[in-house]
Design a protein around this nucleic acid. Structure first.
Lengths: 190, 190
DNA sequence: CTCGGATGTTAATCATCGCTAACAGACCCC
DNA sequence: GGGGTCTGTTAGCGATGATTAACATCCGAG
């Protein structure tokens, strides 16, 4: 049977994500990750070629999910509905950040620990995702220079990704609402 | 002569801050830090009792500076000028973040690597700083529950601290302006 | 039944790293 | 001019950690 085994990879990735989020890539040992899924140490090499490969796959997956979600939600060439597209991007990002705080944290912090061939690919996906936002914003603010829109986008990411730091302050629904309100306001007068 | 020597500690702290910001606490070796200031390796132990002590001092210094600046800028018991106090906090934080991106990054990320006695102290300073913001905001929005104000404050920190990630997109003055505008808007309808 | 792959285990290797020890020059004060 | 402190240096110790090797199990397929 493959089914009980298939989960192992995902289990490991999930456990590693939590650990990386909490203590950072270099602060977590292979042993730690193994222990977190109930196996011990080098068993991980049956599923991943190494620690860096594990991180690489994790970041590629996150970046790909965000980019795909972004492309799906932002596809609105119509300027009239740019407002709606922005709302969709916002809600999508907030939902992701609230549902996967560990992934957001790792995505935000650990890119530098990915070895070079894959790092470019991840950066590219991150850039594509950000460009979805910039494109939508540039429809809303045609007069605003792109560099400013890019900086604003990163600032909004910083705001939305603050979630893991203020965890527990508010119930998720209230938090989502707050973030949506603040982000919309922040983007309302560029 | 003590003068040329006194700088060593500061030199080391500055170099370590840059390295920690770039590669994370565990990603930097004592050798690396030594090399960055032109001495090699264990020379650092003439100035700091260890790697953790170095980080501890760095974070204590940052937290203290922010707290002091916050206390100074927010001291305005008058509700009429709460708006002005908020502006002052905002400008102060932005200036700090733009002038010391590495410090902001370390401050944001490395608290978990500080050993326990000092960690509490740093957390306390960070909390005091955040409470300055919450106090000012609660004067502006007396009806808003404190938990929401706290979450909003952390979200604003996330926005303002995005600086190190969008470095180079905009000249510092334009960046400061953008952040001020976005933050003010984000806080305008809590 | 047995062969083979998938999945684990423990022991060993090899590098890195934080930190200490032992020693050396510079400079100051008496 | 002889301690004494300050600041470095290089070697070495001990621990940790990633990775590999060698060896067990389980289980489905022929």
């Amino acid at each position: 049977m493959k089914t009980p085994t298939r989960n192992r990879r995902a289990e490991i990735l999930a456990a590693a994500a939590d650990l990386f989020a909490a203590r950072g890539f270099h602060g977590v040992s292979i042993e730690d990750i193994g222990a977190a899924v109930g196996v011990s140490g080098p068993a991980l090499y049956r599923h991943f070629s190494g620690k860096e490969a594990l991180l690489t796959e994790m970041l590629l997956d996150i970046s790909e999910r965000l980019r795909e979600q972004g492309a799906r939600l932002a596809t609105t060439a119509d300027p009239d509905t740019a407002e709606a597209a922005l709302d969709a991007l916002l809600s999508g990002h907030i939902e992701f950040a609230l549902n996967h705080p560990a992934l957001i944290r790792v995505h935000e912090r650990e890119l530098d620990n990915v070895p070079e061939p894959a790092r470019r690919a991840i950066r590219r996906l991150q850039r594509l995702y950000a460009e979805e936002w910039v494109t939508v914003l540039s429809e809303l603010y045609p007069a605003c220079p792109p560099a400013r829109l890019r900086a604003a986008t990163h600032a909004i990411f910083g705001l939305l990704n603050s979630t893991p730091r203020s965890a527990g302050e508010l119930p998720p629904e209230a938090m989502a609402d707050l973030l949506r309100t603040m982000a919309r306001a922040a983007l309302s007068r560029l």
